[in-house]
Design a protein around this nucleic acid. Structure first.
Lengths: 227, 227
DNA sequence: AAAAATATTTAGATTAGTCTAAAAATTATA
DNA sequence: TATAATTTTTAGACTAATCTAAATATTTTT
């Protein structure tokens, strides 16, 4: 269980995971080399090593696929990365577009307990600052369907993933109200008279007009079992 | 200025810094090998590399000494290490004796701004959870003189570094009152009648009896210019 | 289905950090 | 101050991760 992989091995697993999601088939040596900005020959060598460690299934000239163990490891690195991003934005006042590089380093810190403790400290967030889902400690990844807040069902847990109107006035309005990408949001009541919404945003009840609700994209939060 | 040192090079600098403080003279190859749990021959190789990079002064058979640049780098790594330790204890609910190994990894994360942002988030702490001083962003290290709280002058900024009485009852008492190693403390008023103290602890005013004050070690906090 | 193009693997080299064993310098001792 | 003991350095080798160039498979094109 104590795998103790190198920084590089972990990055290979992440890259394979990410490329696996775009297409069903095995990940090719060349695609991996591209993604990792390295040479195909280097990929071949590393992939053999990962196969020895049972983290991928590999047959010459046929590309690679993560094993169950490899997938588990990749997901845990992604979890770590996304939680650190939340920390950096929420507590160290970075913008969401500044955090990737730092999280890229933090994700490799090894500790049995660190990431679960961080998760708890952050209040078990379900999305990172880019709106991407954060796997839970068991490796389950929340899955989403994007829609407008105005179309969201009552009581459906969701999170804000983007805006339709990206004008300065609107963004400023959101800022003032404390509404941001990644925030958890749930509609408690829809007023039939003016279609305004009573929502719970970050544990606080606030009121939102239909006009605003028509310009906010949200994703449902549902849990998706890994494997 | 953008040094971009390897994990290993950074650890050598830290080790040299730490050994330099125990004695005035240059740090010997063997002592370094011991500290870093490696061989003297490896140390010689690495020390030559650090000398090429102007981080240490080295002459064959004469040991090494950090250059100004090397010292600056070492101090910044120590700063990073100690701030991460504060974070782990204060926010991720680790005990002070559990954090070293994790901070050992976190300290090497590279970013122009990360550590200063962390420092701000933590409220610019002056000591880590072990009571060791945290260098500020300019590399100045607070220096302390250990004494009993009962002997501390009025209004002198200090921090708690240890206990004289380490009985369970006393430790439990401290726990209840929220008094812990690393806490900042300052005496506001000393009551002449019973020698009880009115102190500011963690931004809060509380009362402490002489009996307790006689069993708490504190260090003055003063700033010490580097170089 | 043969030739051409593309993808992948192998072979051999390189760099960082380490090691062992032997050589050289320094320090201690008699 | 010679000799012994210790410390430090050098020489040569190893491993991980990478590279280039050449060899081999596979896929595409005609």
């Amino acid at each position: 269980m104590k795998s103790n992989l190198s920084y590089t091995e972990e990055n290979y697993l992440k890259a394979i995971f990410s490329l696996s999601k775009k297409s069903e088939s095995n990940v090719s040596t060349n695609d991996l080399a591209n993604k990792l900005v390295t040479k195909a020959s280097s990929v071949t060598d590393m992939v053999k090593k990962l196969a020895d460690k049972k983290l991928v299934n590999y047959k010459k000239y046929q590309g690679v696929k993560l094993s169950d163990q490899g997938k588990k490891t990749a997901v845990s690195i992604i979890r770590s990365h996304r939680l650190w991003e939340v920390f950096l934005v929420k507590h160290l006042s970075y913008r969401w577009d500044e955090v990737h590089e730092i999280a890229e380093q933090l994700e490799h810190v090894k500790s049995e307990t660190l990431i679960d403790n961080l998760d708890k400290f952050l209040g078990f967030p379900e999305v990172d600052p880019h709106g991407d889902p954060i796997p839970d400690k068991n490796g389950n990844i929340p899955i989403f369907t994007k829609k407008l807040l105005s179309e969201l069902e009552i009581d459906q847990e969701s999170s804000i993933v983007g805006v339709k109107d990206s004008s300065d006035v609107f963004l400023k309005y959101l800022n003032n109200k404390g509404i941001a990408i990644g925030n958890k949001i749930k509609i408690v009541h829809r007023e039939s008279f003016d279609k305004s919404l009573e929502v719970i945003l970050n544990e606080q009840k606030i009121l939102i007009t239909e006009e605003v609700a028509k310009n906010l994209f949200v994703k449902n939060i549902n849990t998706h079992k890994l494997k």
